[in-house]
């Protein structure tokens, strides 16, 4: 076994394993989907569980609860007392804070008076500054006017430039379009030409094929008629043969032209002796022509044997 064969075998094995696994997965999936809707299986619910409880310990429990309630009341009383104490302390604290508040207010008033004096002085200075600013604004307005005029001129120039560019682009686009159209037309023409050439080629091939077929057919006819002639030449006519015999003969040959079998097939209107004589004639031929007929060679050849008297 060669290594190529072994490799082939391994590949086959891998493929087979993959297919087998796939089959099983598919079947498992079908099974799983089929079993999806299975009704659930009911099992009897577990019996109800009941626990009996002894009532003896209940009395003691009630006594303990009473003691607990008393303790809670005492605790509440204590809390109330503590709350009153806290309230008194808070009152004293509030008075102290009011005292401090009054002191703070007094200081704020003094501060406000000083601030008013300062504001008056600042207002004077402000008036001075406003006068100066007015003069400045006048100068600025004039400058702005100048600038606006210059900007307008620049804008005008820019617009001019833009218009020129647009026109340029338009021209370029048109040119491009014309070029593309040209190319498309040329391509179409080429395609048409190619189609025509292909069609012509196809016709030519078909014609050649037909010619070859015809040649083959005539060669085959010639082959069969040669065989028929050979058989007729080797035929010894039995005395019982009537004119008008037509028999189909099948000859089996091997490469090289050697005849290995011959038999009469239907239709055949000859009697037994004639049939035997025809088969004997074919066997006597022994070897059929082979050279020059290789292309129409066939293992089995049927032909009609005729005798018209």
């Amino acid at each position: 076994m060669t290594s190529a064969q072994r490799k082939q075998e391994l590949k086959d094995l891998a493929q087979a394993v993959g297919l087998a696994v796939a089959v099983h997965l598919g079947f498992g999936l079908i099974l799983f989907i089929g079993a999806w809707e299975w009704p659930r299986f009911d099992q009897p619910d577990p019996p109800v569980r009941v626990t009996l409880v002894d009532m003896g310990p209940m009395v003691e429990q009630r006594r303990a609860e009473e003691a607990e309630r008393q303790a809670a009341e005492q605790a509440a009383e204590e809390q109330r007392r503590q709350a009153e104490q806290r309230q008194r302390e808070q009152e004293a604290e509030r008075q102290r804070q009011a005292e401090r508040q009054r002191e703070i207010e007094r200081r704020e008033r003094e501060l406000a008076e000083r601030r008013a004096e300062q504001q008056r002085q600042e207002a004077e200075a402000q008036r001075q500054r406003e006068l100066e600013q007015q003069a400045q604004r006048e100068a600025e307005r004039q400058r702005a006017e100048e600038e606006r005029r210059r900007a307008e001129e620049a804008q005008q120039r820019e617009l001019e430039e833009l218009r020129r560019q647009r026109e340029e682009a338009q021209r370029r686009r048109e040119e491009e379009q014309r070029r593309l159209d040209d190319i498309a037309q040329r391509r179409e023409a080429e395609a048409a030409e190619r189609r025509a050439a292909e069609e012509a080629e196809r016709l030519r091939l078909a014609a050649e094929q037909a010619e070859a077929d015809a040649r083959r057919a005539t060669l085959r006819e010639e082959y069969v008629s040669t065989i028929r002639e050979l058989v007729r030449r080797n035929w010894n006519r039995p005395p019982t043969t009537r004119p008008g015999v037509v028999c189909r003969v099948r000859v089996v040959q091997i490469p090289g032209g050697e005849i290995i079998a011959a038999e009469i097939v239907r239709p055949c209107n000859a009697d037994e002796a004639t049939r035997r004589s025809i088969v004997a004639a074919v066997m006597r031929v022994g070897e059929l022509p082979y050279r020059g007929y290789e292309s129409v060679f066939a293992r089995e050849i049927d032909f009609d044997f005729r005798f018209d008297g």
Binding site: D12, L13, Q15, A16, V17, L19, A20, V21, V23, H24
Partner: peptide, 13 residues
């Protein structure tokens, strides 16, 4: 079953 399917596919080829 797996093994027999492997053999089935192999033989078929």
């Amino acid at each position: 079953s797996l093994a027999s399917w492997v053999v089935i596919f192999q033989k078929r080829q």
